[in-house]
Design a protein around this nucleic acid. Structure first.
Lengths: 223, 223
DNA sequence: TCTTCGCAAGTTGTATACAATATCACCACA
DNA sequence: TGTGGTGATATTGTATACAACTTGCGAAGA
């Protein structure tokens, strides 16, 4: 994904944004010609973007028929969060046993940066540091395949995550959870770390309730 | 993947086969022009195949540079099996609680078909029935996202699975394991079912030792 | 001799033209 | 009235032409 051509990535992100925003109804057909004209590119890079979107599960490509949006239902989004929570829990369970001293430092640094960003009321910096913290845990799991799959899951959910979700309330609680997870890692308690992480992600998913309800109410949504 | 154009899928499968067979060394560059000529197609469908391969993690596409094969090391293949084993275990744990009577019947039917195929010494039929059995478990997990991700993992490992691995010895043991897993499901013991499944996949992975050693010995492999 | 700049060849990225396939309206016919 | 077939139209799939970029060689200069 990070290695894909610039144009296709941009188009892909924009279509993702639209799907998450509810601009398309579930099952709606995406016209190659129409989108190509809209983005002022030829069909070649547009088709590339559609293939990426298929890989992320956001559209379905049917041969000789075209691309059809797959807008996730509430059920499906919950399932995605469920899978991600379990993968993150698994990462941290392994990481607790395998983490290196250097990675321990990275983790604490990332946690500190989260803290600073929160104090500075800088959501962008917070999400960067938050991503770094979680990413370090994936890496510390010592299983690169698990790491990549977890990152892929994060990537899939990205368009559905609200960047501005209640900055004061939830983020502070989230930070305390980070600290507890890091403590569990340092105290070498893999099961506790995993349970805390699972709860951390699941609580996170609940913050999307409002959004989920909104998406469900949009027209054309069937499941 | 199943929804991709015929041509690209064929090319993709052939390149996968070659990577698994060790025809390319790790990091080797794949020439679009060369491969297009070889498969007697234009660069357009060939690039589509390369994008699919990137999605499966078998090549890395670097913008303006080209496609580079990512032949998995022993370590990486073990990691892939580890992830798959855990996902399958997770599926069966959920399936034990959620399976429907109809799915129970499908499972037993698939197990019977495995049995028949083994008796008839028909490996192709065995692998079909085996896939059906595992697929039904994914589906019975009740989490479609988990199901899709697990299937994707199976798909990724496919080119590295030997279709003919000792037909008499291992397959019979594999079948007994199937029966034990199905029993655990019907006796409503999710943890036992999960443990059995994890062992089932991990033992399976050990059958590839010979192959893994072979791949590792090939030239150009670095990690 | 080593470094750096610039040009040329080759490769990838994109646009466009053409071929193959699906869609849909219309008509013949029971 | 309903059903099945047929052709026009539109859309997708593929080939090809062109643009943009990378790479590697070689010359100029320190």
């Amino acid at each position: 994904m990070t290695n894909t051509s610039k144009t296709a990535t941009l188009i892909c992100t924009e279509i993702e944004r639209r799907i998450a925003a509810g601009a398309y109804s579930d099952g709606e057909k995406l016209s190659e010609q129409g989108l190509a004209a809209e983005f002022a590119v030829s069909r070649t890079p547009l088709r590339e973007a559609l293939q990426i979107l298929q890989g992320l599960g956001h559209v379905e490509l049917i041969p000789n028929r075209g691309a059809f949006v797959r807008r996730p239902s509430i059920t499906r989004l919950v399932e995605m969060f469920e899978v991600m929570a379990e993968m993150e829990a698994w990462c941290v369970r392994l990481a607790t046993a395998r983490i290196t001293p250097a990675q321990r430092l990275y983790l604490r640094q990332a946690a500190t940066d989260c803290d600073k960003a929160l104090a500075a009321n800088n959501p962008e910096a917070y999400f960067e540091a938050n991503g770094r913290l979680h990413g370090t845990i994936y890496e510390a799991s010592g299983n690169s395949v698990l790491m990549e799959e977890t990152q892929r899951m994060v990537r899939r959910l990205r368009p559905f995550r609200r960047s501005q979700l209640n900055l004061t309330g939830r983020l502070e609680a989230s930070m305390r959870e980070h600290d507890e997870i890091l403590n569990a890692i340092e105290e070498n308690e893999p099961e506790r770390a995993a349970a805390l992480m699972r709860a951390h992600i699941n609580i996170l998913s609940q913050s999307y309730d409002q959004y989920l309800a909104q998406i469900e109410g949009l027209p054309g949504h069937t499941h």
